[in-house]
Structures are given as structure tokens and as C-alpha cells.
Design a protein around this nucleic acid. Structure first.
Lengths: 317, 317
DNA sequence: CTGAAAGCGCTTACAG
DNA sequence: CTGAAAGCGCTTACAG
């Protein structure tokens, strides 16, 4: 034990590792020295038991996965690390909707709107664990959240195509249960209405590349006159690009294809997808700000951060 | 407190939540009932303090990211969840090479070979925290590991191209410091030597799509006679496909391109990349077996699992 | 500035 | 089958 070796009390050792606590510098030095020598490090579990903060944050991972979701989670964990938090990754399907993670005295719990169950909301509230949501507004639940303006983003995309002279629009939507799916579709519809156009064909898919391929293929085969195909995310747009290719439809000459997210793959040479940027670094930063601020100030009112989307012009419009 | 409400001891409550401990069924029932009512759940931190297992597993996330690495980590966390473990995600750059995670009484620590520092190895050994490595062999360090047979895999790919009549080979390699880079390159060289061919051009890149694009582009421009381009992973192969496209080189008519990993993107319609399957589900399962077995049996000899690669024929060879 | 003591919320022998 | 007690490894008032 470090305390014995250094001839000090356990309190002193604890203080040596606590920034900003009173301890004679020479003593602290000696303690730290012995600690590194024998490889001692305060046990975070025991420390976390002390009423204060555990610095543990559960990140609930949803079941619908695409490149953008994965990227958000990865960046989120990185940002948590950078702020001295320990992200515990929890699968929504595996761990009882994420509620099992509440066995830990969590400083916070982060979840995408689409994976948030009522049960989870109730239990967090009951236990006083702050919840931060992303991907949809949650004011009505009194929960902080950050999300990209989906409708606005899609309006940007649709306006671009209308202004390019496109007139026969098809749409590949995301699963109905997602807030983002509804909003993105609404954005498209708004613009078409203003332009006195209507959606000529539409199909719902699953936000995946394969799903987008199948959906776009059947849509394009049944509606050969389409000259614009808007997809609710980049993964499906990439699938749509494949579908157009196999059907011999030239993009963008005969057909415009746009997506949403601006995932990495949108900028590859073989895709060069025109899309709407869903700025994940910004979203992640906002989530962290909400989290830190919530911990400092547990009783403040909940806040909703709306992140601005941005049109990214590349080669498929 | 549940114990009071149910009129039992704290021991009884603890036992009610511990599978396989003696407790009259009616009592257990009552305790569980009250627990769900008031939202009680044993504190995992306090439980973890009890000499036994914490069920906490640190997963160290490296700095070099590509789709395959991200997928491995994501699946790994999912598999850990499925086995009742709590993965703590730790950024190798942010958290002192991952060593900071040792503040928790970890049941194990999982790290990719390329992100494993000597310091980390020493400290895990000193603290008795089992380390499971993937992506390279670590027998000499007395550490369990699982990895795909890189050399064998690349031999499969190179043999395919040789048998197709390709004679002028180029190679886009991964960063020198990775074990997998060296082994994959060796696989290519072995096959060429046996066929009395030699590598005509070669360049090292960074396992990313953009890196692969730039590398392949310069390679192809400087060596217009190449008829085969082997890339050390799928991401760079996708980049190479883009490079070939912008240079007007028809794949596979004039140039064969193959990758390694069989990442999701390799099977998209727009890529249909011929590649070598680096079976991540198998690797993840093997890592979990190693981990569980190590926990049950802390003093067993270390094991190295070599996962079999598999040639996947698609459209670019 | 520092030590002795209490306490965080559990589990686990130890007695019954 | 079950309770009282000790103990896990820390931190934090409380006295000095």
C-alpha cells in the first residue's frame, strides 16, 4: 500500500491524486513517485461510490446501423474521452433497451431518439440520471437534445433539383417510425408543392445501402420517366446509384440522385454524391456541451439544439 | 430501501438478485416486486468492489480508422453485451494509450495489435488484467490473440490474378508499422515469385479510401502498363477503383483490382469488389471465447487463434 | 496542512 | 434458508 510506503495516511494519498486539494508539494511528489513505481492508481469504482460523480456515461447503440450512425457513436465516445468521461457502450437490443446500464451510477445517458423507449425515459427520470438525446426534439419529455434540421436540409436538396429543371420526382424514404424520416419527407413535399409539382413515386426503405438499392430499383423500373430521385440518407442514395447503374440510367444526365448526411462515402471518387451535410462534429460537440452543462446545473430547463444542415454539391445532381 | 420495505435483511436482497443463491422463492418474489416498484437495482459499482468480477472490459480504440476497424469494435461491444460484459470504449490517443482505463478493476482489456504499447502491456501484466489482442500474434508477450491469416489471404488473391493471366502487378500497401501490412505484402511477393513475376510498382498508403485513391492514381499514372493492382485493404481498393475510373482505365477489362477485408462496401452494387474475406464475426467470437476462458482460467497458457481468410469473387478481378 | 473515522452500497463468509 | 457483521477501496467532513 502506497500510504505505508510513503509514511502518510490514506487521506494524503487520496489528496495526492485529487487536483486542487491541500497537500504539501514534497509529500505529493513522494506519493506520486511511489505510486508509479508500484503501479498504483486509485480504483475508479471505489471512487465512484463516493456520492460525487462517477464520470461514467452510457451510450446506447441502436439496432439500425449505417455509416453515419456508427460515425456519430464513435466520435461521441472520443469526445467523451476527451472530456474525461468513460463511455459504456450499450446495445439497445441486448441490454433491455439500455435500461440495464442504469445499474451503474451514471453521470448521464446518451441515446438516439429512435432508440429511446418510454421505459428508459421513466427510469432515468426516477433515478435522476440526465438523459441527452439526439436525432429528434424531446422538449415534451423535458430532455435535452441536439439534432440536425431535417426538413430544412431536404428543402435545400429539393430546391436544388427543382432549380435544375427536374420535374418528375421519386423519393426513397426511411423507416416510418423515425422522426427524421417524417421530417425529411416533409421537406421534399414542401418544396414540390411550392413548385406546383407532386411526388410521382415513393417507397419506404431501411436506411441501408442494400435496402436503397432494392427500393430504388423497383421504383425506377416502375417509373421510367423519373428525372430526380431523393433519398432520405446517403446509404440509400449509394444504393440508388447502383440501381441506376444496373438499369443503364445515366446519373446525373438522365437522373439526379441526392442523399442526406454527407457520410464519408459520399465524397469518394466512385460516388461523388450530392447531398446534405448533417454535421456530426457539431452535433457531437453540442451533445457534450449539453451534458457538461447539465451536470454542472442539474435543475436547469431542458434545451434543444437545432444544428444547421448544408447543401453539398458534387456530381449526382 | 428495499430491505426495510420487504422486512428482510440486506443479505436477502442481495441474494434475490444473485442467480443460484439460496432464498425462499416467495421472499425473492416479494423483493423483486418491491424493487421494480421503486426502481431499485443493485449498484454495479458497489458490487464490482467485491473482490469478484467487475464485468467491465476496456476496448481500446485505435487512431487509424476505416470501415473494417469500426465494424470490429462495434461488433465486439455488441458481443460483450451479449455475454453480460460492459465495454468501456477508450481512445488510445486520448487516454494515455489506454492505460488510464486501468483505474477500473477491469475483467479484461481488448486492443488491436497496432494500438498496443509496451507500457500498456507492462501495466496490465503488473495489475493482473488479462489482455486480449487482435490483428497480430502476441505469443512472445504471453498474450492471447486472434487474427486473420493475412499472408495466406493475400496469396489467395494474388494466385487468382496470376491464374487469370495478369502479369504486371502493382501493390498499394498499408502503413509499415502494422503487422498486417507486412504479412499481406509478403503474401503477394510469395505468389509472384513462384510465378516468376515481380512486383513492378509499389506504394505505401494509409488504409483509407482517400489515401488509396491518391496512391493508386500516382502508381497507375507512372506505370501505365500495369494489369493488376492489389491493395492491402478494401478502403484503399475502393480508392483505387476511383483512381482507375478518373484515369479512364477499365476495371476489370484492362486492370484487375482486389482488396482485403470484405467490408460492407465491397459488396455494394457500385463497387462489387473482388476481395479476401477477413471474417470479423469469427474473429469477434474467438476473442470472446479467449476472454471468457481466460477469466475462468487465469493461469492457462496464452493462445493464438488464426482465422481462415476466404477469397470472394466479385466483379473487379 | 494532515490524520482518524465514518460512510458510499454492495457481497460474502460465518453463525445459526 | 437467513441475518449480523466484516470488508471491498476509496473520499470527505471533522478535528486538530
Amino acid at each position: 500500500m502506497v500510504a505505508d510506503r510513503a509514511g502518510v495516511s490514506r487521506s494524503a494519498v487520496s489528496r495526492a491524486f485529487t487536483k486542487g486539494s491541500y497537500l504539501e508539494e514534497s509529500k505529493r511528489q513522494k506519493i506520486l513517485e511511489i505510486a508509479t513505481e508500484i503501479g498504483y492508481q486509485p480504483n475508479a469504482l471505489a471512487a465512484g461510490l463516493q456520492g460525487g460523480r462517477s464520470r461514467l456515461v452510457a451510450v446506447i447503440e441502436g439496432d439500425v446501423r449505417n455509416a453515419h450512425d456508427t460515425a456519430v457513436i464513435s466520435q461521441l465516445c472520443s469526445a467523451l474521452n476527451a472530456n474525461g468521461f468513460w463511455p459504456i457502450l450499450v446495445s439497445v437490443t441486448r441490454m433491455n433497451g439500455g435500461a440495464d446500464a442504469l445499474a451503474f451510477p451514471l453521470d448521464a445517458l446518451i441515446v438516439r431518439g429512435g432508440s429511446m423507449s418510454e421505459d428508459l425515459v421513466h427510469r432515468c427520470a426516477k433515478l435522476g440520471v440526465p438523459m441527452i438525446c439526439y436525432g429528434r426534439p424531446t422538449e415534451e419529455l423535458n430532455i435535452d437534445s441536439a439534432y440536425c434540421k431535417n426538413r430544412t436540409g431536404m428543402e435545400l436538396a429539393a430546391e436544388l433539383l427543382v432549380s435544375k429543371g427536374r420535374r418528375a420526382f421519386g423519393y426513397v424514404g426511411g423507416p416510418d417510425q423515425f422522426y427524421s424520416s417524417m421530417q425529411r419527407r416533409k421537406g421534399v413535399l414542401n418544396v414540390l408543392e411550392r413548385a406546383n409539382l407532386s411526388l410521382e413515386a415513393e417507397v419506404v426503405s431501411d436506411f441501408s445501402v442494400d435496402g436503397g438499392f432494392a427500393a430504388a430499383r423497383s421504383l425506377l423500373m416502375a417509373n421510367t420517366h423519373l428525372d430526380a430521385l431523393i433519398c432520405a440518407n446517403d446509404a440509400m442514395a449509394i444504393g440508388a446509384l447502383g440501381a441506376a447503374h444496373t438499369l443503364g440510367i445515366a446519373v446525373p444526365d438522365r437522373l439526379s440522385v441526392v442523399g442526406f448526411d454527407d457520410a464519408d462515402m459520399a465524397d469518394w471518387q466512385i460516388t461523388q454524391l450530392t447531398t446534405v451535410r448533417n454535421p456530426l462534429e457539431t452535433t457531437v460537440q453540442e451533445i457534450l456541451k449539453l451534458l457538461v452543462d447539465r451536470i454542472d446545473n442539474p435543475d436547469r430547463e431542458c434545451r434543444t439544439i437545432r444544428v444547421e444542415p448544408q447543401l453539398i454539391l458534387r456530381g449526382t445532381h
